[in-house]
């Protein structure tokens, strides 16, 4: 189960269509994230966490990109450097996390899709949400972006934020 989710996430990383076997009417949220190319002497791909916040509800992690395939789960040692995510959600989770764990991504634009009622997104109550994206890079910096949206989304609804250092543009689009 865990493995199949990882495969799905890895598939979306290289631009393949999302493979969830959801009915055509299911609400899908597409999140596009740009990881900037950086001119630094020592570059490591950032750890990136995606989570949802809603007033009065616990934070809900929907994806974490980290070095999940290191010997003895050693990549989890640096999860705490994704500091705000670690505080609001990560520290209460077990890793690897089913449907949430994913590999780190190279610089470039990546799309990950979440389908209502499926996987990490699950069923969302109606209301105002914030998607928070936090990136932390080994021997580099940390950046956090917040994208508010309402659920269920209105037709044509989008959200957009742009990072200055560790993240490029992040956008949310919705489709059925």
């Amino acid at each position: 189960m865990q493995l199949s989710h990882r495969v799905i996430l890895a598939g979306s990383a290289i631009g393949m269509p999302v493979l969830f076997a959801a009915p055509a009417t299911a609400q899908t949220m597409d999140v596009t994230v740009a990881i900037p190319q950086l001119k630094v002497a020592e570059y490591h791909r950032p750890y990136v966490a995606f989570w949802l916040e809603k007033a009065g509800a616990p934070a809900k992690t929907i994806a974490v990109w980290y070095d999940f395939d290191m010997k003895d789960n050693e990549g989890t040692k640096w999860l705490r450097d994704v500091r705000q995510w670690w505080r609001v959600s990560g520290r209460s989770m077990k890793f690897p996390a089913d449907g949430v764990t994913g590999a780190t991504r190279a610089p470039g634009t990546h799309k990950i899709s979440f389908t209502a009622g499926k996987g990490a997104l699950g069923t969302l109550a109606a209301g105002d949400y914030t998607l928070v994206v936090e990136a932390s890079r080994e021997v580099g910096g940390r950046e956090l972006l917040r994208l508010p949206f309402s659920w269920p989304p209105k037709p044509g609804q989008t959200a957009r934020a742009a990072g200055m250092s560790e993240l490029g543009a992040v956008t949310i689009a919705f489709r059925r």
Partner: peptide, 10 residues
């Protein structure tokens, strides 16, 4: 060395 830690062999 740290006060907030993650991982399996800490």
């Amino acid at each position: 060395s740290a006060t907030v830690l993650s991982g399996d062999d800490v």
